[in-house]
Simulated scan of single mutants.
Amino acid sequence: MVFLTAKLVQRLALFVSFGGLVITFVTTFLPLWKTLNTDLNEMENWYEGLWHTCIFQDELGLQCKAFESFLALPGDVLASRVLMFVSIGTGLLSVAVGFFGLDGVELGPGRQRLKRALLILGGVLSWVSGVTTLLPVSLVAYVTVVEFWDESVPDIVPRWEFGEALFSGWFSGLFLVLGGSFLFVSVCMRDHGHRRATLPGCQGKPRKPQYRKTEVL
């Protein structure tokens, strides 16, 4: 497509990666990773995240309480905390590194190879950020499913279910992976454009007019 240039793909990649980073940051601190509703009291809804356990009541509203002990955290919650922080850190580095590799951002003369390396590094960091977002979200979802179908727990005991933060985490991870992929595509497009510019037939030389010889009888 004519309008799909390397510069446009680069900016689209940073926009998608930055959007995924913002959603990842919000997802990390949302207390909506798991939700629970009891049949005995339908006016109460319980929510649990990586940092808080909350209860919503119609009369009192939302009340949250932080986990008291760091050492008493379940293994999946502790691992999810670490991975989400790694995702935020690598996502910030990805956006910063990718910005300095954009076409139009001056780093000095003769720095095209450096800018190409920055775009590749930004794509790798964005992929790492996306994977480290998808892993904790999928881990919490897996543990929730296993505990929901645990036959050793009596049926009268309420079970945790998926919260909205899990779905936002999956979307943010996919956005980060997609943004990194767009950065790789922009590098390939720019390399292809440079190769075409160096070909003998693509130097932009004026072509001699060709005339067809005709005979008049």
Rank of each mutant, 00 (worst) to 15 (best):
S152T: 14
K115L: 07
V216H: 02
I88P: 01
L12H: 02
E42I: 01
F18G: 13
G204L: 08
V216A: 00
D191E: 09
P31D: 08
V157D: 05
I23H: 05
D191L: 09
L30F: 08
A72E: 14
S17W: 06
R111S: 03
V187R: 07
G204N: 12
V131Y: 06
C202K: 06
N37H: 12
E48L: 09
A96S: 13
E161V: 05
E68F: 03
G75I: 05
L78I: 04
M189G: 02
S181E: 06
W127I: 08
N41E: 12
L217R: 12
T5P: 08
A96Q: 03
F100M: 07
K65E: 14
R113A: 14
P74E: 15
F67C: 05
M84T: 08
P209Y: 01
I156W: 06
D58Q: 13
T90W: 02
R212S: 05
R212A: 10
F67D: 04
F171M: 15
L114P: 08
D58W: 08
V124M: 10
E68Y: 07
W149L: 07
E44V: 08
V131D: 01
F175D: 04
G123L: 00
G180F: 01
E215A: 07
W127M: 11
L118H: 10
F15W: 06
R196L: 14
R195I: 00
C188N: 07
K65G: 00
W46R: 11
K7C: 13
F162V: 02
V185P: 00
A13Q: 02
G110L: 08
V16F: 11
E151L: 13
D155C: 04
H194G: 03
V2Y: 10
P136N: 01
R195A: 08
W149D: 10
P136H: 02
G89F: 14
H52Y: 14
V157L: 04
V146L: 13
I120F: 09
Q57Y: 04
G204E: 10
M84P: 00
M189N: 03
K7V: 15
G108Q: 11
F56D: 14
